[in-house]
Design a protein around this nucleic acid. Structure first.
Lengths: 192, 192
DNA sequence: AATCGATCCTAGCACCGCTAGACAACGGAG
DNA sequence: CTCCGTTGTCTAGCGGTGCTAGGATCGATT
């Protein structure tokens, strides 16, 4: 029994190692550099080992995405709970979200841009993703305004943040005035 | 002289054929299916011919993106000029933008998601891209509100549209309520 | 008609994601 | 303690990718 448990622990440990290494490599050199060969070399195992943990590369991306979604939710909650008043909370949320995208571009891509084989906006959506949306909803529902469905409002606000995050990061928007864009967005969208 | 001119015409024609075929193939089967081999086969030339027109695959994507940006600008202008009043114009703009993204997903990706080697928000940004932004600016500047820089406002509005477009298309947002999201967005952002 | 340059294709490089099948290591049974 | 069978891992290879070197072919010019 104990033997089997030890093996399972080792397996779980190696699986975390794979995900962490993939994430690290992606942040360092971009997802294009995350090949199964390079990944295998970094964890000091052969390629096929990866396939005993994950069905394929997309599942590895998906695992990084789930890990990232959990962190994103935590970052958003930490920022909002540290702020006082609805207006300040929303601003803090926006900055926390955009900072996360800036600081973890590869993880952000894994969550929202790449195909990690994850289901969104459905019943079988993985918990971390639902929870990340919930983290946004908690704060944004307060400022949705009368007669506006909180979920719908959150979707729109989130989409705006997502647009700012992605367009800024690929150079479509000059990063200099990021702060003023957030200010404008919060000013107009949130009803305090 | 005439001979040389004929050859140049043929070359230009073949180049348009490459771009059109790449676009067609991408819309039919996704960009993953656009390989240099398949593309070469479709235009009935060998692979290396592609490289006598473009430096590589990204430049082909870039060419599709420029073509698409021109069409996007035209679609936006057509929609806004057909509407009466600032409010209606902004709504028409939003719908035209989102419809373009829905109807030409591969082209939209080429413009905003994929790496086509294009420069954005810089001096050497290609004209079609600048013009597409200008098409948005023309209508949105009117509803930016007092003391708000029109360019900044356009960037925020655009980012929101971009967020809605991308999140909807990859299934992150249920498409059913797309109309109500646009309504909310215009209501809050535009100052009529 | 012969030549010479432009044009195009065949063949191949290094790399990709993924997998079949050989092989070794190790826990449990006799 | 030895043997067996399972479990785990690796080597090698498949078909595909973007891209390119070098030879063949075609056609305009002399």
């Amino acid at each position: 029994m104990s033997v089997q448990e030890r093996k399972e622990r080792e397996r779980a440990h190696r699986e975390r190692l794979i995900v962490a290494t993939a994430r690290e490599l992606a942040e360092q050199q971009g997802w294009d550099a995350v090949t199964t060969r390079r990944l295998a070399e970094r964890i000091e195992y052969s390629q096929p080992v990866l396939y005993s943990h994950f069905r394929g590369k997309r599942e590895i991306i998906g695992a990084v995405a789930l890990e990232g979604a959990t962190e994103l939710a935590a970052a958003v909650r930490a920022a909002t709970s540290a702020a006082d008043g609805p207006r300040a909370k929303v601003t803090a949320l926006a900055h926390a979200y955009l900072d996360f995208a800036t600081d973890n571009p590869a993880v952000y891509d894994a969550i929202f841009q790449l195909d990690g084989g994850l289901a969104f906006a459905r019943e079988d959506t993985p918990e971390p993703l639902k929870d990340a949306f919930a983290a946004l909803l908690e704060t944004l529902a307060v400022v949705a305004g009368d007669g506006v469905h909180p979920g719908l409002f959150t979707e729109v606000f989130w989409a705006a943040l997502h647009g700012l995050a992605t367009l800024t990061r690929v150079g479509r928007l000059p990063p200099a005035e990021a702060g003023r864009r957030v200010e404008l967005l919060v000013d107009r969208l949130a009803i305090v």
